[in-house]
């Protein structure tokens, strides 16, 4: 319980601060000016393609290397220079496990418990990640997903105030992924700050208070999920009615449709972005239905939905 006071502090303060971060490896600049802050007790997700700079950003925050330029603060300290003081307060799960194959799951947890100041119990840690029945199994005999879960147990065994999770659910089956999400949510509920990278957009939508989408070394967009998707319009789609020429379809909010063929039918898709985000889908659909009424046609498979994180992600990755 002696973690309580510090956790209360970090919940009110800023746990992670990154400003103007650049990271170079020789001539290659992996990170080119990244800024974000994570308040204590919140979960922040970094999304992006491979090579976007997520892991590099994370490794600077984890204190593995100094920033080439810019400033990073972790719990108010410099993660590289103050590593000795910060290390016991931080839990890290790398993108690849780095476990010792010759140890059993229990021996692995015991090693990390012995290195920590105020660790969880061995059984408690293994049960948290659903490996209670694998205690005596050699690490090399665990499946990829089980290794990932053991790795997560090591990251939380020292009761960290800040948790870095680099693609934590890669290789897990859906059940293990759900259980892992619950564990991460419990950590956040208990006051832990989490910085997570993921390829799974659903994971970010489920867990994150705020997200940032990185591409080629910069943050292209950040905010809460609703904020991020709001700028990317609402999607309206329907099958083009038979005998209606494509150039006879109306413009909605000044936007012309894109036509694609799905299941053998030409389908019209509109992305309406103008005006206030709350009412624009309604206005667009109202004018569409008015047009359909005039034309006496039925719009089969009419669908309206807000932009998804995937839409935003693909727009960023494809356009830039």
């Amino acid at each position: 319980m002696d973690g309580m006071s510090t956790q209360t502090l970090t919940r009110t303060g800023t746990a992670i601060e990154v400003s103007g971060l650049h990271q170079r490896y020789g001539a290659f600049e992996a990170v080119r000016g990244v800024d974000f802050t994570v308040p204590g007790g919140r979960l922040f997700a970094l999304l992006g393609t491979n090579g976007a700079g997520k892991t590099t950003t994370m490794e600077v925050l984890e204190g593995f290397r100094p920033a080439s330029s810019g400033t990073v603060r972790l719990l108010g300290a410099d993660p590289y220079r103050d590593r000795r003081a910060l290390r016991p307060r931080v839990g890290i799960m790398l993108q690849e496990s780095g476990l010792i194959g010759d140890l059993t799951a229990a021996e692995t947890v015991d090693l990390w418990r012995d290195l920590a100041r105020n660790p969880l119990g061995r059984d408690e840690a293994l049960d948290l990640v659903g490996l209670g029945d694998k205690a005596g199994v050699a690490v090399r005999q665990l499946s990829g997903g089980q290794k990932r879960r053991l790795d997560l147990a090591l990251a939380v065994v020292g009761r960290p105030e800040v948790l870095f999770l680099d693609e934590p659910t890669t290789g897990m089956d859906p059940e293990a992924r759900l259980a892992t999400w619950r564990l991460i949510q419990d950590q956040v509920a208990a006051g832990t700050t989490v910085l997570l990278t993921t390829h799974y957009l659903e994971e970010a939508e489920r867990l994150a208070d705020r997200i940032a989408i990185m591409h080629r070394g910069t943050v292209r967009i950040d905010g809460t999920v609703p904020e991020v998707v709001a700028g990317h319009g609402d999607r309206i789609a329907f099958r083009v009615p038979a005998h209606t020429p494509i150039d006879a379809l109306p413009a909605l909010d000044g936007i012309l449709p894109e036509i694609a063929v799905t299941d053998g039918h030409p389908t019209a898709r509109y992305t309406v972005t103008g005006g206030d985000p709350d009412g624009r889908a309604h206005r667009a659909v109202a004018s569409l239905l008015a047009w359909a009424g005039e034309q006496r046609v039925t719009l089969d498979r009419l669908a309206v939905r807000p932009a998804s994180l995937e839409d935003v992600f693909l727009t960023i990755v494809e356009n830039q």
Binding site: R87, L94, S97, G98, L99, I100, W112, L115, A116, L154
Partner: peptide
């Protein structure tokens, strides 16, 4: 090469 050292370095040991 198996990232064991880096994993340890991310923990409490110097």
């Amino acid at each position: 090469e198996e990232l064991v050292l880096k994993r340890l370095l991310g923990g409490p040991a110097s």
